[in-house]
Amino acid sequence: MNRTDERTAQCEVRLPDLGEVNKVTIVAWLKKEGEMLAAGEDLLEVETEKTTFVIDAPKAGKLLRIAKQEGERVRLDDLLAEIG
């Protein structure tokens, strides 16, 4: 679900397929914009169905942009962040 542009090495973090869930909410960003990330490092937590689901950084790099804020509802494939 995460897309990497080979030319710029930028990577989009999108909400993965969690199954037939609805009402997925961002509960916490674990990194701030501008912070450096290691591949696989915890990036944010979403919650649905009484479940906290941790989304990690798909690649190493800088967290360029947070696209959705804590408390916002998100859907499958929504853009959450950009890493470059």
Binding site: D17, L18, G19, E20, V21, T48, E49, K50, T51, F53
Partner: peptide
């Protein structure tokens, strides 16, 4: 187990 959070619950 199918990577399905809803099915797990």
């Amino acid at each position: 187990h199918g990577r399905d959070l809803k099915r797990y619950i």
